[in-house]
Amino acid sequence: MNTLIEKEFDIEQPIGLVWKSLADPEDVVTCVPGAAITEKIDDKNYKGEVVTKFGPIKAKYSGDIEIVELNEGEHKMVLKGRGLDSKGKGSADMLMNGTLEEKDGKTQVKFTMDITIVGMLAQFGSRLINDVSDQLLNQFVDNFKNKLSASAPAEESVPDEAAETVAASAGGTAALTSTEKRTEPKTPAPQEDNALNATSLIGTVIKSIFGGIVDFFKSLFGGKKS
């Protein structure tokens, strides 16, 4: 199944800082629920994995992420990802277009994700996929904002390695790869805690459905919407 997700959010941080973090897969991945970079092949190609729990289905996708375009001047990026379910139960393909825009010293982030899912998740989860994606993205945005606000004031004192990474990635073409980097990804492998929580997700979906019904009945009797 195919789904197009569009998302827009503002961050109260300067565009340069946001770009630096977003443009570095190894950095930004720490904000994606359940995701990890497992190997950096070169500046444009990474290997990674995502663990999601979806009701009774727990899916672990491992695959490749390719940076198709990284234009710092226009603050525009295009990412392509393809993941295979580790148990052979399906695959997911993603094409992401992201742009940053400066707005009164803040940054507006806009992106679209075109996702094609094949296999069990598509069969059983097709009706929930948009709600779940939305939940995932909200978690990501929260994580990302928290991360930036935590790191921003202390920008000068970030550990050398991280600073180096940010600087190098920002350059886009800088040859940074070292054998250490390839064999020791700095992002830890995804933990259970980091995996998408099924209960909260399904809860959200149910709440949104029933929330609508409750609102409907409240409106019938002149009550306020919850």
Binding site: N2, T116, I117, V118, G119, A122, Q123, F124, S126
Partner: peptide, 14 residues
Amino acid sequence: YDEAGNILNGTFMD
């Protein structure tokens, strides 16, 4: 079925 070949209602839920 979708274009990718998935059956989109393969359970009695759908």
